[in-house]
Simulated scan of single mutants.
Amino acid sequence: MKRGVLLVAHGTRVPAGVLAATCFAEGVANRLKAQNPLWENVLCRLAFLEISTPDIYAVATQMYQQEGIRELYILPLLLLSAGHALADLPRIIDDIQRDCPHLRVRMSSPLNDHERLVKIYQQHIHDALQQESGIDALLFVNRGSSYPHSYRIFQQIVQQTSASFPDLKKTSAFFAGLGAGLSRAFHRLEKSGVRECLVLPHLLFPGRLSAQLDRQLKEWAMGHAHLHFRSAPLLGESDELMDVYAKQIVLFSLRRAVQTV
């Protein structure tokens, strides 16, 4: 049975975000094939949930009709399980399955190796501290979700990451959903007497939210000269995270402990 892998990114109107997602997906595919001989000839493609093209349905049906794929592994390039992974993707998969009757589709959960994600964050903090010893606080910023489970997982990541840096103050902020917004987090930092804050975006690729974050950081800094921000790289810039996703594909195909459609 001919297998294929479909990596699914969120999508953005920002060209740099599309390019970053494309490069990241290529990195995941290259690592998958280089590290696992049985996957050397597996077809890997990238699609987007919304806004950007190509979309998931178009790529999946093309892989089925033109490439002869009969077993398709879908891996969401998402950091947490929320509305897209729990509702939108299953609905799209239903449409694919309806129009591709001989295609077996399996969807993995989004990123599930949170320990490796914590290590990536910790490395970002170590790197920043080597460049700027005056950092006295960490600000973790998430896109946000109305799903309590996603909120709890993110807070666990924050706690585990910051546990290695007990001398640094920490707080978190969200663009939407549960949790405090950025303005509230800024006020907390100011009230705590923070002077130099490292911002850790819980985002994979450049897009509307990363641009909004940069804008709000600059606006706050202009009105509060005593509080300085510096931002860690986006998570999609991490080679280690490419390895994490590549290994997740292999593991979920072996365990078959995934959603089978």
Rank of each mutant, 00 (worst) to 15 (best):
K2H: 03
G11D: 11
R13D: 11
A25W: 01
G27H: 02
R31C: 08
R31V: 02
R31D: 11
K33G: 03
P37D: 15
W39T: 00
N41R: 04
N41I: 00
V42N: 00
S52T: 12
Y64F: 12
L72Q: 04
L72E: 03
Y73I: 05
L78N: 06
S81L: 04
G83K: 01
G83E: 01
A87K: 07
D88A: 10
P90N: 06
R91P: 02
D95V: 13
D95N: 13
D99W: 06
C100R: 05
L103F: 03
V105P: 10
R106Q: 12
S108Y: 01
L111Y: 04
I120Y: 04
I120C: 06
Y121R: 07
I125F: 07
H126Y: 12
A128H: 03
A128L: 07
E132T: 03
G134L: 10
D136K: 03
L138D: 15
V141Q: 06
R143L: 11
S145D: 14
S145A: 13
H149N: 12
H149D: 14
Y151I: 02
Q156K: 08
I157C: 08
V158K: 03
Q159M: 06
T161A: 10
A163L: 10
K170D: 09
F174R: 00
F175C: 13
A176E: 15
L178Q: 07
L178N: 04
G179N: 00
A180Q: 05
A185H: 10
H187Q: 14
E196H: 15
L198H: 14
V199T: 12
P201L: 04
L203A: 09
A211N: 11
K218D: 15
A221M: 11
G223I: 03
H224L: 07
R230E: 14
A232E: 13
P233F: 12
L234R: 05
L234Y: 10
G236E: 13
S238I: 04
D239H: 13
M242G: 00
Q248N: 01
I249H: 03
F252D: 12
